[in-house]
Every structure is written in C-alpha cells, then in structure tokens.
Design a protein around this nucleic acid. Sequence first.
DNA 1: ATAATGATTCGCT
DNA 2: GCGAATCATTATG
Length: 210
Amino acid sequence: MKLLSASFYQNEDVVAMAKKLLGKTMVTEINGVVSSGMIVETEAYRGPDDRGCHAYGGRCTERTKTMFYEGGHAYVYICYGVHPMVNVVTGPEGFAHAVLIRAIQPLEGLEKMMDRRNINLNKPVLVNGPGKLTVALGINKEMDGQKFYEINSPLRLYEDNEIPLHDIISGPRVGMSKHVGECSHRPWRFYIKNNPWVSKPLVVDYRGKW
DNA sequence: ATAATGATTCGCT
DNA sequence: GCGAATCATTATG
C-alpha cells in the first residue's frame, strides 16, 4: 500500500474528492499501535457556498480554521459535545473544503478497535457512523491539523482500491434537516454499493428531487 | 457572561 | 422508531 502524496489532496473539486476517497485506507498509529480501515462512506462539504458547512461563507473561527488549511490536513472537531468527527481537508489553502468520513471497513487492529469501542463484535455497529469510527481508530481532537501524507503522522491515508463510478451510490447528506434551501438536497453523500459497512441505507424515494 | 444548537449515539419500546 | 444525554463552539448582549 502506498501513502497518498500531498498533491493528491490539492483537487479543488471536493465532491470529486469525496468519491475518490472511497476505497482508500485510513490508518492511525498511536504509541506504535496500528489500526486501519477502508473508507466506505463519505460526505462533501464545500466551504464558500454550502450552508451545511461549518465554514460557510468563509466563516473562520478557532474551530473551523483547520478547514482553511492546504489539502491533506485532518479537520477533527467535537459534535454534540461528545463525538469526535474526522474530515479530510482538500483543495488549496484558503478554500475550506472538507470530506467527512462516515464509515469504514476494519482492516488492521480489529482487537484494539473493539477494545476502544468497548464492543466485542466484528460487525458494522463497531464503525458505521462518523462518531464511532473515530473512537475505534483512536482519533481525538488532539489530531486536528495533522497531515495525512507524512509517514510519521499518527493519522495517515493510503492508496488502496479504486472504486469504479458505477459502484458508488450518492444521496443527500445526513443531519442537514435544519438547513433550508437547496444545499440540504445536494446529493453529496457517497458510499460503496452493496458494502455492508455503510452507516445507513439510502432512502430510495427521492421522486426526482435531485 | 450567557443561551442556543448540533455533520450523533445509545438504550429502551 | 423515539427521546435523552451532553458540552464545545458560536453568536449575542
């Protein structure tokens, strides 16, 4: 497996990046302990014009400033006061584009992941949600701003499978209900078709809304 | 200084 | 399926 280079993350098209990240392997190495999983579900957040994005309209605060970094950094934040979430920052510095990782398929360090989650099951429930996979991999707010492309980073991304477009399902993002307008309907959630490790199945009935 | 809110999860029904 | 838990972050006064 090959470590993804810094240039991989420079793509300005965050929606395309969300698709490209499917099939890649996310690795954590904490005190020499390695855990990893293949990314099976993502969501795109496009800073400038996306109401669902923390950095909508260029809003740069203490929390969101990492999103403005150059592509290849990790944006980790706490949701609902308890759950850490991990994003892959993409595009050139200053654009605030990020891809939320919503689900993985465990590869290495299964025992350690079950240990961290306090669940003794090698099943999707272990990692099928943005707040679950971070706990399983040991990702916390301390890792905010880390680089995915440096070999000595505790948080890294590796080239793995390329997922063909016809194996990618897209749909509306999760948790956008409070947001009004077109943004909430953008089909910027992506996952690998027929993969049992995704967080929730897509509701099929869109009636042509997107 | 204070109040509102959420890119969720878990446990119970 | 539903509702509570829970607190960092943010905006506002």
